[in-house]
Design a protein around this nucleic acid. Structure first.
Lengths: 127, 127
DNA sequence: CTCATATTCAACCAATCAGTTGAGTATCCG
DNA sequence: CGGATACTCAACTGATTGGTTGAATATGAG
């Protein structure tokens, strides 16, 4: 994988199955078997999804007898929020600045000159 | 398109090229040509990326002579933040609750029997 | 040691994705 | 009108993804 972590995290959460897993891991750590419960999907498929989350750094795993419980690593979520919020804020600022400019426009300016009307057919020309 | 918007938005931002576009659209609206500038990539490819962002609801487009300037729709970002923050907060709470429990443990309990050997590797690097 | 449980590995498949090139459409300008 | 500019559509391609099944590994219980 020659792809940066931010990309991996976004990609990981682009799948509803994986988002569901994250939602449940936020409540409690869980094994592959437990996670697989609600899904109509093979155990191996769930294992693969878990692997994607792990590669993205969203979950860590430990060993507990045969089980390998997954644990949500919430810090990575902060990385996403940081990215998103940065640009949301930037855009927001820009918009409010635009609003301010518009609000300051003096009344004697007509910012929307009506374009000259190209005219119609020559049928039934009126004198 | 049988895929929910949240999935589309996450997927849209899973690509570095598209994240870069979003970053620049946060600064100013831009046309396909302008956006394509820095990329070593055909105009059509950029147009396609823009389409993905549009389908995800992240940008809207208008018409201005031949140009079709793209405009960042920041509200959608809020949807992501809402999702992420919900689970981050949930996990966070859970951890602090756990901390509280541990802090309350009477002294005569040894809550952390030291494992004979912390699993040394646990996971070999796969080629 | 042998068996059961929990999980992963490996090979395969269909669908989607990110990119390409080439042709087509929309809009303005002279 | 005819061109130039800005963009999109269509068809193709190789890589990745989300799923499958069957075999393999890891660990604890008897």
């Amino acid at each position: 994988m020659a792809v940066d972590q931010l990309s991996r995290v976004f990609a990981a959460l682009a799948d509803p199955t994986r988002r569901d897993m994250v939602a449940r891991l936020a409540v409690a750590d869980a094994t592959v078997n437990e996670l697989a419960g609600p899904f109509d999907m093979s155990l191996q498929a769930v294992s693969k999804h878990l692997r994607v989350l792990e590669d993205a750094g969203l979950v860590s795993r430990s060993r507990e007898a045969q089980r390998r419980p997954a644990h949500l690593e919430a810090e990575v979520l902060d990385m996403m929020t940081a990215w998103i919020e940065r640009y949301r804020r930037q855009a927001e600022e820009r918009f409010s600045r635009l609003d301010a400019v518009l609000a300051e426009l003096p009344d004697d300016i007509d910012p929307l000159p009506i374009p000259p009307r190209p005219i119609a057919d020559g049928k039934g020309a009126r004198p």
